[in-house]
Design a protein around this nucleic acid. Sequence first.
DNA 1: CCCTTATTGAAAACGATTTTCAATTTCAAT
DNA 2: ATTGAAATTGAAAATCGTTTTCAATAAGGG
Lengths: 146, 146
Amino acid sequence: MTVPRQAVLEVLSADDRYRSAEEIFFQLHEQYPAVGLTSVYRTLTLLAQMGLVERFDMGDGKARFRLRTGAEEGSSCRLICTNCMKVEPCDQEAVEDQAASGSMDDVTRSLETEYGFQLRRRVVEYYGLCVDCRRRNEEKRSQEEN
Amino acid sequence: MTVPRQAVLEVLSADDRYRSAEEIFFQLHEQYPAVGLTSVYRTLTLLAQMGLVERFDMGDGKARFRLRTGAEEGSSCRLICTNCMKVEPCDQEAVEDQAASGSMDDVTRSLETEYGFQLRRRVVEYYGLCVDCRRRNEEKRSQEEN
DNA sequence: CCCTTATTGAAAACGATTTTCAATTTCAAT
DNA sequence: ATTGAAATTGAAAATCGTTTTCAATAAGGG
């Protein structure tokens, strides 16, 4: 545990907003002027690899980082404001249950009443292994057995 | 309608895979060697603004582009292979209906049988206006009325 | 303490995308 | 066809978030 790492964790612990590396760097800088932007990036990458930090790629070219709370595992659901870029976690179960069906209209209504959020676009992404890569993996594995 | 624009549209129309600007540029280059990468970027940006093309920011730093089919409106659902980065659109209704509940396990099973896809992580993102930006917008609008 | 190893900060490198700018193309009006 | 103004182009330079390089420093087990 070194100074830069402690500093990054300190800032991340302060609150659970998503912040860019630069934002984190500037917040650090007041209390730890010696810590460089490079180390902030390195620490964030390290913490993300360790699973302590969640990296989130917004469409604007800058990655955002946030301390993992442990509540999320494998699945995530969030409200993203296209105006101020604020990211707010939300409970998918609650949203979908509130909605009578999974239809866009019902979800829109649910988000409106639950969060005051005005829905424009819903994105669902399933990350994993496609059929081809799966097959290729299995082939490789069976080759290694020989 | 100019040569570069026609060329980009031609490549995009060829199939509906997600492709990076560079990939599109190289495919162009055989038939239209005079068209530069700059124009490919410019045309893609233009087409995206016009809503003809969908821009998709993968986590790897390169944006992917695909011709809009019209089938998607407001909502999108896709399978993303974390190994080969292939992006395959899928029908959310079908997936969620197939699954007995919205639980991760059921969705995993559904994707497995429907697409042979091995789910690792599900991401649901709702894009729109948060409460604050909404309020701010309304204030601005009412000010403009005076 | 010392020595090996890991970590650091600054500066340079990187890669995707954007901007700049002079040259070319487009297209509507002739 | 011809013009000419406005839009578009390609190449090179600039931008910007992030990563790499590298010599200097710090960590922490012996």
